[in-house]
C-alpha cells in the first residue's frame, strides 16, 4: 500500500533524513483542525511511515508561538525538517498539493495540477 509512493519519494529526495519533523498549528478543536490532523496523519502513514513526527500546537494555548513561527493562517503545517522549511496552509484535503508542498511530489506536476484546477 505504501510501497509505490515511497519509491517516488526516494527518487525525488536524493538524501532523505531519517526523521521528518512536522508541526501542525491549530487554534482550538475546530472542525478544520480536526480534518487537517486526520488528513496529515493519513498522508504521513501513506508516505512517511515510521519516519515522521507530528507536533500539534494549539495557538490558543501558546499564542506567543504564532509570532515566533510567523503563523497567520490556520491550520498551517510546517515542515521543519528536512530543510528547507516548508509551509502548507489549509485543511490538507488536497492530498496532491500536500505532497507537492512537502516535496514528496516533484514541482513539475504541481503546475499541471494547478492548471487542472
Amino acid at each position: 500500500m505504501n510501497t509505490p509512493p515511497t519509491g517516488t519519494q526516494t527518487e525525488t529526495d536524493q538524501d532523505p533524513p531519517d526523521i521528518w519533523t512536522l508541526r501542525l498549528y491549530v487554534a482550538g478543536q475546530t472542525p478544520k483542525s480536526i480534518t487537517a490532523f486526520g488528513n496529515l496523519k493519513r498522508i504521513c502513514e501513506e508516505h512517511l511511515q515510521g519516519r515522521y513526527q507530528i507536533e500539534v500546537i494549539d495557538l490558543l494555548e501558546h499564542p506567543q508561538l504564532a509570532r515566533g513561527d510567523q503563523i497567520l493562517a490556520i491550520p498551517t503545517l510546517v515542515r521543519r525538517l528536512p530543510e528547507p522549511v516548508r509551509k502548507i496552509i489549509g485543511d490538507l484535503s488536497n492530498t496532491e498539493r500536500v505532497l507537492i508542498g512537502l516535496d514528496l511530489l516533484p514541482r513539475a506536476s504541481a503546475r499541471s495540477a494547478t492548471d487542472v484546477n
Binding site: A27, P63, A66, I74, T76, K87, D91
Partner: peptide
C-alpha cells in the same frame, strides 16, 4: 511591533483555511 512575514512562493494551499493565526497573534500582542 510585530512583523508578519508572508512569502507567496513558500506557501502551499491545500484546502480550507482561515486567519485565526493572525487573530491569535494580534490578540496576544
Amino acid at each position: 511591533v510585530d512583523y508578519v512575514y508572508i512569502e507567496r512562493s513558500e506557501i502551499e494551499e491545500t484546502g480550507e483555511f482561515d486567519l485565526e493565526g493572525l487573530f491569535v497573534r494580534l490578540g496576544y500582542a
